[in-house]
């Protein structure tokens, strides 16, 4: 891999609209190697869209976005499909609604990526998948279908599936928002362990405890822009922006 130093994710002035609705407005930020960046903010502030831009599930119409040293998008133009697919192999994505493949066993959900995209032999891919399932605490579920799993288990499989591609950065799009409260902890625990291993992570979440404990940088979004960004101690204890203050008050009073 040629991209040595420099940020893993670098956005410069990206903007995105859905029809007349401007969702992202001139957003710039960077995620350095091994950094955990957590994005918080009220719903509709553009957090998820920002995250989805980072693997071109959404295409910003202006600005540029560089991932792992490759310029993914510039002014609404995405790199050709072939290069995009190669780049996406380095970017793991975890969705709010898991999106596991229901027709494949848990083991195959994890192994299907390396098998089809890295041309890994079946035995090797399955051994790797079993390792990863062990890591997320689901070794015993390898041979069942996703429909039989709880939400927390599904999300842990989804994390293992993304890790199977050996990505250089992991994107999490509200990974615990669809979970029953008692299942949130098991997923956050896996994510903490991942951060501890030095994985570069960009996480959109409403879990303020996770942000406070694990984040290197907390970015607060509102109205399609980043209104505040800094280490968690500063953002949570001494927010500079009045909108950050009112958002945190609202979140903490309901928690």
């Amino acid at each position: 891999m040629t991209a040595a130093a420099g940020p893993i994710v670098e956005a410069r002035g990206i903007a995105k609209s859905f029809g007349a609705n401007r969702v992202l407005n001139d957003v710039s930020f960077a995620v350095e190697p091994s950094q955990v960046v957590v994005v918080i903010g009220p719903s509709g502030s553009g957090k998820s869209t920002l995250l989805r831009c980072c693997n071109a599930l959404e295409v910003p119409e202006s600005g540029s976005l560089t991932i792992c040293g490759t310029e993914l998008v510039r002014d609404g133009r995405v790199i050709p499909d072939r290069e995009l697919n190669t780049l996406r192999m380095q970017v793991g994505m975890v969705f709010q609604s898991f999106n596991l493949f229901p027709h494949l066993r848990v083991l195959d959900n994890v192994a299907v990526g390396p098998r089809t995209l890295r041309k890994m032999p079946r035995g090797e891919a399955e051994a790797m998948a079993r390792d990863l399932l062990g890591k997320v605490g689901l070794s015993e579920k390898a041979d069942v279908y996703p429909a039989t799993l709880s939400g927390g288990q599904k999300q842990r499989v989804a994390i293992a599936r993304a890790l199977a591609m050996q990505p250089r950065v992991m994107l999490f799009d509200e990974p615990t928002s669809a979970l029953d409260p008692e299942l949130v902890g098991e997923v956050l625990q896996v994510m903490k362990a991942l951060a501890g291993e030095g994985m570069t992570m960009l996480v959109v979440t409403h879990e303020m405890g996770f942000a406070r404990e694990v984040a290197d940088v907390v970015m607060v979004m509102d109205g399609g822009g980043i209104i505040e960004s800094g280490p968690p101690e500063q953002v949570f204890s001494a927010p500079r922006n009045s909108r950050t203050r009112s958002f945190l008050q609202a979140v903490i009073s309901t928690a």
Partner: peptide
């Protein structure tokens, strides 16, 4: 579900 295509493409599939 649209998420199935998104998940597959996110892995790097064409």
């Amino acid at each position: 579900d649209r998420g199935q295509m998104e998940a597959a493409r996110s892995l790097g599939m064409s």
